[in-house]
Design a protein around this nucleic acid. Structure first.
Lengths: 154, 154, 154, 154
DNA sequence: TTTT
DNA sequence: TTTT
């Protein structure tokens, strides 16, 4: 409803892999992607070209989760606008861990496919067989589980 | 020098504690703050007012580190514009951990104190004794160590 | 509903005068403010300190128009997030003119008063008599008239 | 050098025509483009699909002016980050006019071509003859003249 | 893991 | 841990 402060993230990057779509108990989709942004620069001493790639975990909720799951794929270029969200979870040994994500909900977030649809999935035929979509399942061992309670502002 | 993609974070929030200033071997300051942003909303079922506070770790480099260390204090309201950066580090047991920060360097980042200096430190006299500034020292146990190599684009 | 492209403006500045609130035929409020942002720099040749102030015309629609009209005043510091909008109008001599505004609607825009309420109107008593709020009236000669048709996306 | 306030514009759009490159007396390039962003929505009463296109005048200075002039063309999709700037000029009849532009300078601005270079000019051969680049010349009658004095912060 |  |  209201807010104090501004929490805004704007990313343009390419997907490192196909989106993962999961479904909440209530039936709502939640789609996660990893997005690469990179910086290149020239080393002051050696003059060498350098590059650093940053990987972002972006989570779409609501209607945008459906759209992202349907239209994005590995390599797609996308604009995502959302907010930072750090989730606490426990690893196998019971230790507290934190994961920071960019949350893009359908009320305050924005998602746009870039590049004249060259970045998105083909509408008609697909050139290559792609892995079947991820069904709702337990997360892999090293990955923070998603356990959104019902009680969130979006 | 160049880049592929956009990696931008815009925050307005209040400092949870006084800034921590550290000095790199080369003498450059690095200042860290924790910034709170909050959202409030009304629960759809119960109608209760809810609030969620998000805490952001923001790291200033270069000239902005000096300014932030000198002029910000616990409770200050600040605008920070930077980029996401996830650092890998090892905890006591040797396990890999990741911490995501908002990096505000003096070339591409922005820092502004808000609120007509009401948010910043008083120029003349200080009302309350404040803890002495953090000297360069080993980080606390649970905190990711900062170990920036020399090789970064800022 | 959907969009192609991104059109986003983020401003933090101080109001040059009290907000102007007008009411549309349907009863909706539209509030306009002028917001100053400034840059300072040092002249490369002379070494003199320079300053340039930019004035922005910002228009709030919907619920934010009510809030802005009620809580902002001359001198308030405010965060406004909206989109660019250029309106065509005709001056007295019938010539086409264009005015570019930052439109902040209640669906995609954001408004936040900054500075620990020091920037907003006092809740209780007002220190100084302020001019009575602008009633719906014909715009001054040199000012572009607002004539929003009913047909807009917000 | 310093600043009070934030003045930031973020656009993603397509060029309506090829860029116009001009050269200042000192030899620096200034490149102007017009960028379209569009919104689509459904009319609440009639249910009709509606679309509104907004045209933005974007001006690149410094190194980015060179890059924009060389690599962008009509139809290119581009990310531009800059600041609002309203210039005063006089029309033929001596009347004061104002034009608002998005100024993207090479210190604080950002420009990125989007769409896997599909949006930019081809490197090797050009498919179609394109109009020769605009030499430095007097502006068209209805267009605001560019007359930057030497005295600006970028 | 992407993209150039 | 901030702020309202």
């Amino acid at each position: 409803m209201a807010s104090r402060g501004i929490n805004k993230v704007i990313l343009i990057g390419n997907l490192g892999q196909d989106p993962e779509v999961r479904y909440m108990p209530g039936g709502n989709a939640v789609t996660s992607i990893t997005l690469a942004t990179s910086e290149t620069w020239r080393d002051k001493q050696t003059g060498e070209a350098k590059e650093r790639t940053e990987w972002h975990r972006v989570v779409f909720m609501g209607m945008l989760a459906e759209v992202a799951g349907k239209h994005l794929k590995k390599g797609s270029q996308v604009y995502a606008e959302g907010k930072l969200r750090t989730r606490k979870w426990q690893d196998q040994s019971g230790q507290e861990r934190y994961t920071t994500e960019v949350l893009v909900d359908s009320f305050t977030g924005v998602m746009q496919m870039l590049g004249g649809n060259g970045g998105g999935k083909q509408q008609g035929a697909s050139c290559q067989p792609r892995p079947t979509p991820q069904p709702a399942q337990s997360p892999a061992n090293n990955e923070p589980p998603i356990d959104y309670d019902d009680d969130l502002p979006f």
